[in-house]
Write a protein that binds this DNA or RNA. Sequence first.
RNA 1: GCUGACGUAGCUCAGUCGGUAGAGCACAUCCUUGGUAAGGAUGAGGUCACCGGUUCAAUCCCGGUCGUCAGCUCCA
Length: 642
Amino acid sequence: MNKIKITFPDGSVHEYDKGITPLQIAESISHRLADDALIAKVNGVLKDLNFKINEDSKLQIFTFKDDEGKHAYWHSTSHLMAHAIQSLFPEAKFGVGPAIEGGFYYDFEINKQLTDDDLKKIEDTMMQLAKENHSFDRKELSKSDAINYFKQVGDNFKLEILDGLNDEEETISIYSEGEFTDLCTGPHIPSAGKIKYVKLLNVSGSYWRGDEHNKRLQRIYGVSFPKKKMLEEHLHLLEEAKKRDHRKLGKQLDLFSIVEEAGPGLIFWHPKGSRVRTAVEDFWKDAHFKNGYDLIYTPHIGKSWLWETSGHLSHFKENMFAPMTIDEQDYYVKPMNCPFHIMIYKSDLRSYRDLPLRWAELGTVYRYEKSGVLHGLLRVRGFTQDDAHIFCTHEQIEEEIIEVIRFSLYIWKSFGFEKLKFYISTKPEKAVGNDDLWEKATDSLINALTTEGLEYEVDEGGGAFYGPKIDIKVKDALNREWQMSTIQFDFNLPERFDMKYIGEDGKEHRPFMVHRALLGSIERFMGVMIEHFGGAFPMWLAPVQAAVIPISQSFSDYGQKIYDTLREKGIRVELDKRNEKIGYKIRHWETQKIPYMLIVGEREKENNTVSVRQHKVGDKGSVKIEEFITNILDEINNKIIN
RNA sequence: GCUGACGUAGCUCAGUCGGUAGAGCACAUCCUUGGUAAGGAUGAGGUCACCGGUUCAAUCCCGGUCGUCAGCUCCA
C-alpha cells in the first residue's frame, strides 16, 4: 500500500515509497544525476523536483541538456533577475518573465531608464543572490489569498493577471526564492545556486501585454548557463552572428545599400550584389522552366477595380501605398501579384485539358510597412517575390502539392540549406469556403508531407481566412530559423474573380488556386543567404569568382590575357592592376571573401599557368590555365558548396 | 506606428563642459616593381542628418522633422 511503481523512460519499472520526490529518485540512480537534475515530468506534467509522487507514475528527469531543463533553468533565472531588480529598485513592479528560445526576459516598471551599467549591477547582484542559494519554494493558494498578497505588495500587473484566472479551473501558485515571491505556475529548478553564469544582453522597451496603448515597461533579455564554457560558446555564437550581419557585410562587400534620401525600406543593388542576385534568379528561372512552370511578367500597377475585386482594398489597404490618379482612375502599386496572374488566366476560356497551369514570376511588390519594423533586407517596403500560382482541378491537387514540396526541397538544397521544418495551418474560425473544400485541401497538404516522409507540426486554426497552408522554415549555418517558403490554398480569389474552366462534363467548374513562394522574397532570401555563408559565397553565387593578381605591373599584360580568357568563358573575374605589393592585394581580396586568387608573375607567364590561392585555404600551387578553367567551371556548374 | 538610444569625411570611429573639427582605412599623385594578409611620401575630402529656437556665438543646449539601431506590435 505504501509502495508505488515508477516507470522510467527506458521502460524499466522500479518500486519506491509513496511520497518520494523526483530528486530522491535521481539520488537513488546517481549522485551525478541528482546534481544535474533540474525538473521532472510526472505522467506527462512538468513538476518541481520536490514534488511528492503518491501514485504509480511515469517519470522523466531533465537536466540542462534537455530543452525542458534549459527552459526551467532560464525561467528560474528570470525570477532571480527580478529578485535582483527588486533589491536594487524596491519600487519595481513586475510584469511577466518567461523563458524564451535562447534565454529569458523579464518586463517590469521602474522610474529610471536603465543603462548598460545598470545591467552589470543587476548581473552582479544576481550572482551574489545565487551564491546565497535560496530554494524555489512552491505554494498553492486560493485566488483571494493571491490577490491579497499582491495587493499588499502593490503589484498591479500581477493583480491584472490574477483577474484573468479562475481558481476553480486552474491551480494558482506562487514561488518564493529568498525575499522574492512571484505569481507563477512553475516548475522551477530546486535552488538559485544552480545558476552559475549569467549574462544580461540588452534592455529595451515593451508594452504591458504587447499593446502600445498600455503602460510602457522595460524589458531585460539575458541568458544563463551552468558551465562557463557554455556561456562562452553562446556569446561566441552571438558574436559570430554580429559578424555575419547582412547589413554589415552588404556594406563591406559592396553588395547593396539603402539610401536615406531615396526612401527607407527600398533596396539598391550594387553591381556586386546584382551579380549574386542574377545568379540566384537565373537558376530560379531555369529550375522553374525545367519543372513544368511557365514564366510570366505582369505590370507593377493596376486600377482600383482589381483590388476591390480581390478584396485587398477591404482587407489589406493599410499595407498598400496610396493610390495615384491617372485619367480620373485610381491606380495602386501592387502589394501582391495574384490578381494579375488571374487576369492572364481569364484572358482565355480554360478547359480541364489545360490544367494544371503553373505560372511563375519574379514579381516586385510594394507594401507599406510601419517604419519601426524595417530591417535591412529582411523587412523592406519594396521586394520581389518568387511567386507562382498553380491553377488545377480537384483531382490534381495532391500531385501538385507533392511536386511543390519536392521542388522546394531541391531549391533549398541547391543553396546549401539542408535543414527545413514544415508547419501546416488549418481552418480558422472565420473562413471562406465550405468544410469539404478545406478538408480536401488540408488533407492534400498532409498527404504530400507524409508521402515525402517529412515531419511537420500543425497549427490548428492558424490558416488564413482564404485557405490552409504549409509554411517552411529554414535553418541556417548558425542554426537560426527563418520563415521563408509558403504554399497556400486560396478559395477566395477564384470565387471573387469568378474563375472557371470547362470540365470533362462540358460544365463550368471552379479551379483550385495555390499561391506559393519558395525563397519568399528575393531581398529577404539574399539577406539570409549572406548571413548563412557569412559573405563567403560558393563559386556559383560569388560576385567575383576569381581575381587575377599580377605580381608587378610588368605582368599586367599576362594578367589581362588570363582575365580575357576567363571572362569569355562567363566567369566573373576581376583584374587587380593596382600599383601595390602582392601582399596588399591578397589581403584586399581575402577580406572581400573571393573564392580564388590567381597570382601571375614571371614563372606563370613562362609556363602559361596561374598560381591559385583559395579563400581561407591559401596557396594551392600553380596549374595550367585550361586546367583551372575546367576545374572551376565544374565547381560552378555543379553548384558545389564547401 | 509606439518606447528608448543614436546620427561627425566614402567606411569605422575620436572630439568639442558653446568659440564652425580630427584619426585609421579607402581615394588621388609621386617614389618604389615586389612571390602569398597592410612599402613610403604628399594631397584632396566635412553646411558635424535636416529645419527652427535660445545665445554675441550652436556640431555641442532646447523643440520639431527625417533616418538608423534595440525592442513592442506586425510580417515575405
